[in-house]
Computed example of a mutant assay.
Amino acid sequence: MSTIVHIVCTDPAHGVNAWLQRWAIAHAHDAQVHILRDAREAVGGDFLFLVSCHQIIGADVRARYRHTLVLHASALPAGRGMSPHVWQILEGRGGFTLTMLEAVDALDAGRIWHQIEVEVPPNAVCLEINERLFDAELTLMDWALDNAATVQPREQHGEPSYYRKRGPADSRLDPERPLAEQFDLLRVSDPERYPAHFEYRGRRYRLRLEPMES
């Protein structure tokens, strides 16, 4: 009997969906993979992966699966909360840790299964950063399927820190400041959902950063 895998990604417009669909096709020979938009569709199976899932997954749903796992882009317990990889790049870091952990009632507080490091070049823009993140997420999902029988989850240790949810105002640039000082904000701003923008002479303008290769 093949492994039953459900993935909850609540945003159908999220860029990760193309990666998830590709992963589902790649595993068609050894798993029944279904991408869900709502946790109410999660009827049970072997694995429940929560990828860009913005719903609370209660114990009743988790109990239907052998493993319910979350992907989170920080070295937990530091960086719990929302958009951790974006906040870390804005802090000047050259990458982030991607963590696979067990889902529990408390936010991002479950036992850690595995972690990998994701490097982000200082000139990478939003699309390129997301590609590295999504590739790493698929790598961890592969790891979970391959190592579930032998994994030894470990508890989180240390004082947790939290990032708040980002909104449109967090992508606002200051037209009076040099571009170089705001380059990281410009390159992490999602051009579709939270575009970089600034207000000048009574109007608001959108900025889209795209590399122009020579």
Score class of each variant (00 low, 15 high):
G202R: 10
R132T: 11
E117V: 06
D174W: 08
F134L: 00
H34S: 15
V125H: 10
T139G: 10
D30P: 10
S74E: 09
G15N: 02
T10L: 08
Q152P: 11
Y163R: 03
W143T: 05
A75Q: 08
Y200F: 15
G158C: 02
P175A: 06
M100R: 00
L207F: 01
L101Y: 11
R62D: 02
L186Y: 07
S83R: 11
C126Y: 09
F49T: 07
L90C: 07
E192T: 09
H34I: 13
G92F: 02
A196V: 02
E176N: 13
L138Q: 13
I4W: 06
V151P: 01
Y200H: 14
I4G: 00
L186V: 13
H6N: 06
Q156V: 02
H54P: 04
A169P: 07
D11R: 02
E91P: 02
L127Y: 12
A26I: 04
A26F: 03
Q21M: 14
G158I: 00
D105M: 00
A149Y: 10
I112S: 05
R193A: 14
L69G: 06
A42G: 08
E128R: 12
P195Q: 00
V5C: 09
R208C: 04
C126K: 01
P84L: 02
R204W: 04
A42L: 07
F47L: 13
V118T: 05
A39C: 15
E91D: 11
L145A: 04
D105W: 01
R203E: 15
E159P: 08
Q21K: 14
F96H: 08
P84E: 01
L186N: 11
I7A: 04
A124Y: 11
F198V: 06
P153F: 00
A18D: 08
S2W: 10
T3D: 06
V188N: 08
L138C: 14
Q21H: 09
N123H: 15
D60P: 01
D174E: 08
C126D: 06
R203M: 12
L179F: 14
N130G: 07
R164H: 12
P195L: 01
Y205K: 01
V51R: 13
A196G: 05
L209G: 05
G110V: 03
F49E: 03
P12H: 00
L186D: 00
Y65F: 15
G44E: 09
F47P: 12
L107I: 14
T10P: 09
M82G: 10
A42N: 01
N147L: 02
R80V: 05
L98Q: 03
A31V: 10
F96L: 01
R201Q: 14
T10I: 03
D142C: 03
G58C: 00
A180V: 12
Y205E: 03
L69E: 07
P191I: 07
R66Y: 00
I7L: 01
A136P: 04
L48H: 09
E102R: 08
E181I: 04
S171Y: 04
G44W: 06
L207R: 01
D108M: 04
L173C: 02
T99K: 01
F134A: 08
R177Q: 14
G202W: 04
Y205S: 05
Q21R: 15
A39Q: 15
S214L: 10
L145K: 13
S83I: 02
L133C: 11
A136D: 03
H14R: 04
G45M: 11
S74I: 03
E41W: 02
S171C: 08
R37S: 12
L50G: 01
A13K: 09
R201V: 07
A75K: 09
N17G: 08
V51A: 10
